[in-house]
């Protein structure tokens, strides 16, 4: 990691307070310049379908067959205001907790339960398809559990379920993702009964 400077000193103190046993990851550092700012890019969004097609083609590989759904998704109305919704977080950035078995990267379809009070410095990532540097510096980049806890404290959302789900979403086989991963997450929903599921892919 290049130069990260300690800009938000107050935030950093709060973070380091929770790093009682500490570890080698410098959680809480920020970049020298803000990376995300208000506004809109003048360029079109990156088209990863086309980018992947071009990459595979230039390497002489067969085209990856992306899944497609043309029919409308089933719609379950959100009947409560946000301030009364209990939210369950499902993140596919390969999030696991220190002590759990990490994900492998060859179509790992398993899930990890992340307790809602898990300290941020115990969250880890195991994935192959994105640069994990920033997510390992600050897991909230891809798994906003700390920010959700803050929104619950401020009353923006009603609350959080007792545990949440992490999995490794880089599953090439959509058949396996739907047959193996989806039921595990659904089972957690039946158990936790969230009013709203927040999904964060990477």
């Amino acid at each position: 990691m290049a130069t990260g400077i300690h800009r938000h000193r107050r935030g950093l103190r709060r973070l380091s307070h929770s790093l009682a046993y500490s570890c080698s990851v410098p959680y809480g550092q920020v970049m020298a310049d803000p990376q995300i700012v208000p506004g809109r890019s003048e360029l079109r969004p990156a088209d990863y379908l086309e980018e992947t097609r071009q990459l595979y083609s230039s390497l002489g590989y067969d085209t990856y067959r992306w899944a497609e759904r043309t029919e409308d998704p089933t719609w379950t109305p959100l009947t409560k205001p946000l301030s009364q919704c209990t939210i369950m977080l499902v993140g596919s950035g390969g999030i696991y907790r220190r002590g759990q078995i990490a994900f492998h990267t060859k179509d790992d379809t398993s899930v990890r339960l992340i307790a809602t009070d898990t300290p941020v410095d115990e969250l880890r990532t195991a994935h192959f398809a994105y640069d994990q540097t920033d997510a390992r510096l600050d897991p909230d980049c891809v798994y906003p559990l700390t920010r959700l806890r803050e929104l619950a404290e401020r009353g923006v959302i009603g609350g959080l379920t007792g545990d949440h789900v992490g999995f490794m979403g880089g599953i090439h086989s959509t058949r396996r993702a739907l047959a193996e991963t989806a039921p595990l997450i659904l089972e957690r929903c039946h158990h936790q009964k969230p009013d709203l599921v927040l999904l964060v892919p990477v």
Binding site: Y48, W66, A67, R69, P73, T74, W75, T76, P77, L78, V90, S92, G93, H127, A129, Y130, G169, G170, I171, H172, T174, A177, L178, T181, A182, I185, L186, C189, P194, D195, L196, V197, L198, L199, V200, P201, V202
Partner: peptide, 25 residues
Amino acid sequence: MCHQSVGLIARDLEAAGYPTIGFTS
């Protein structure tokens, strides 16, 4: 593929009666 997996799983959760909101990049 992450976005594909999550999008498809969101459809399944919603069909089972759980409202979903998904971020995407």
